[in-house]
Structures are given as C-alpha cells and as structure tokens.
Amino acid sequence: MAEEKKTEEGQEPVPAWQLFYDNIFLLLFLGIAIPTLVYTVWGLMEIVQIPELPVFKP
C-alpha cells in the first residue's frame, strides 16, 4: 500500500475530464436528472397547462 502511494506521487496529475468520465455515479445522477427535467418534467408541465376547450359559436 505504502509503496503504491509512492509511485502515485510525482506522476503527472490525472486530467479533470478523465476523473469526470471515471465517476460513474456522477454520470448516473446526470444521466437521470437531465432527461427527467428536459423531457418528463417539462412535458408534464405542458400537460397541466393545456387550456380548456373554449366556447365556439355554433
């Protein structure tokens, strides 16, 4: 364990984007949140806002 730590130090740092891609649980969160908001929640909001049928002159 201690040895491993040593080799990790002094190496170039891992790019932030790589850390992001490796973070499966952050991806899990975003992968659910984005479509739920953009598709489902927005869609439900539109359904709720549909106006009643107006009165038409016969």
Binding site: I50, L53, F56
Partner: peptide
C-alpha cells in the same frame, strides 16, 4: 394548438 376536453359530450355536441 390543443385544448382539454373535459366532458366528451361537449365535443360531441359541437
């Protein structure tokens, strides 16, 4: 353009 038809009979009457 969409409307909510509460009672179907309302549409039938139209």
């Amino acid at each position: 353009e969409t409307y909510r038809v509460g009672d179907k009979e309302k549409f039938r009457a139209l």
